[in-house]
């Protein structure tokens, strides 16, 4: 199957990450229109016919203890190194590149995932600490048929996504909030998002989106 996707600079990085780890094996892919797109963003059309995801366990050479990851409802038993971060296992080993590693030190929130229903920075959790815990990433928010969650739809409908880099972390942080507080005030939403930095969309539409999602969920 052929598909054409417009990628932003971050998505290029994700693909290179997958290529580097060996999880993405493009065959016969062509790149065209590398020049700047019509909106002067560093976008271009990239066409690749096939993505072949390799085996889940990319670190079989490691002789450390096996760790059980329950990610988006699926169980993965992987051998991890003591110092491996959860964010790296999710992105590089499991190919869940929705979460981003922005700062790598808990400042930006782009790597936010749910860890047993609460939002955490996955760059500050060691992978072996997640043994047996329920991890949810942005990829697990849509249902198996590919229908976006109420919160994801609300982000789109309220213009809460511009470049999209911070969005997976934002959505997961807000999901964690809504599971504890079904009708948060604007202040409570801002407080919950203090650890998520957005530098282009602006926070108002994001707060609007969370409030709209909270209203929608109550219907």
């Amino acid at each position: 199957m052929k598909m054409t996707v417009l990628l932003n600079i971050y998505q290029y990085y994700d693909i290179f990450t997958l290529l580097q780890s060996g999880r993405l094996r493009p065959t016969n892919w062509t790149v065209h229109n590398y020049s700047r797109g019509p909106d002067e963003n560093l976008c271009g059309g990239i066409q690749f016919p096939q993505m072949e995801h390799l085996s889940n366990n990319a670190s079989t050479a490691c002789d450390h203890r096996e760790t059980t990851f329950i990610v988006n409802g699926e169980t993965h038993i992987l051998a991890v190194d003591a110092t491996e971060k959860l964010s790296d296992v999710l992105r590089k080993t499991l190919g869940l590149t929705g979460l981003k590693i922005g700062c790598g030190e808990g400042e930006c929130g782009a790597c936010t995932v749910l860890f047993d229903d609460v939002a955490v920075n996955s760059c500050m959790v060691l992978a072996f600490q997640a043994d047996g815990a329920r991890i949810e990433t942005i990829e697990g928010q849509e249902n198996p048929e590919g229908v976006l969650s109420v919160l994801q739809r609300s982000f789109l409908e309220n213009g809460a996504v511009q470049c999209g880099y911070c969005t997976p972390g934002m959505v997961m942080a807000c999901e964690g909030l809504l599971r504890k507080n079904s009708s948060p005030s604007r202040d409570e939403i801002r407080h919950a998002l203090a650890g998520n930095i957005c530098r282009c969309t602006g926070f108002n539409p994001i707060v609007d989106a969370v409030q709209a999602a909270a209203r929608e969920m109550k219907k």
């Binding site: 808990g106 929130g109 936010t112 860890f115 609460v118 939002a119 955490v120 920075n121 500050m124 959790v125 942080a173 964690g176 909030l177 407080h191 919950a192 998002l193 203090a194 650890g195 998520n196």
Partner: peptide, 9 residues
């Protein structure tokens, strides 16, 4: 202390 994500951990 920190952010919500940090206080959760």
């Amino acid at each position: 202390i920190g952010s919500k994500q940090i206080r959760n951990r």
